Simulated scan of single mutants.
Amino acid sequence: MDERLCSKVGCAREAVATLTYDYHDQMAALGPLAWERHPHAHDLCALHTERLSMPAGWLVIRHEALRA
């Protein structure tokens, strides 16, 4: 997997997580960096992952990598 940068405008940090949305269900899923880029997903750096906020009423599901 080649290095990917954060999708936030003006951010040049390395991406560590991938964010996807379901607008109809007002839900967002944040998980480990996806293996491949996807046009409907947003890659985020650690800073923007921590600062993530969604509109009022939205559900955010945070998937964490399994640890051995």
Rank of each mutant, 00 (worst) to 15 (best):
M1P: 04
M1L: 06
R4L: 08
L5G: 10
L5C: 10
L5W: 08
C6M: 03
K8C: 06
K8V: 15
K8M: 14
V9A: 08
V9M: 02
G10V: 09
C11L: 08
C11N: 14
C11W: 05
C11F: 15
A12W: 08
R13W: 07
R13M: 06
R13E: 13
A15Q: 04
V16R: 03
V16T: 15
A17H: 14
A17I: 01
T20D: 06
Y21R: 13
Y21H: 10
D22N: 15
Y23C: 02
H24C: 00
H24S: 10
H24K: 12
Q26I: 01
Q26N: 10
M27K: 15
M27D: 07
M27E: 11
A28Y: 03
A28T: 08
A29N: 09
A29C: 12
G31I: 02
G31L: 02
G31Q: 12
G31S: 10
P32T: 03
P32F: 05
P32K: 01
L33G: 01
L33H: 05
L33I: 11
A34D: 09
W35D: 06
E36C: 06
R37N: 14
R37K: 11
H38G: 04
H42A: 10
L44G: 00
L44Q: 00
L44E: 01
C45E: 03
A46N: 10
A46H: 11
A46R: 13
L47D: 13
L47H: 08
E50V: 08
E50N: 15
E50S: 12
S53Q: 15
M54V: 13
P55A: 03
P55K: 01
A56W: 02
A56L: 07
W58M: 03
L59M: 09
V60R: 07
V60M: 12
I61P: 00
I61K: 14
I61E: 14
R62H: 09
H63T: 14
E64T: 13
A65Y: 00
L66Y: 00
L66Q: 05
L66W: 01
R67C: 04
R67S: 05
R67F: 00
R67E: 10
R67Q: 14
A68N: 02
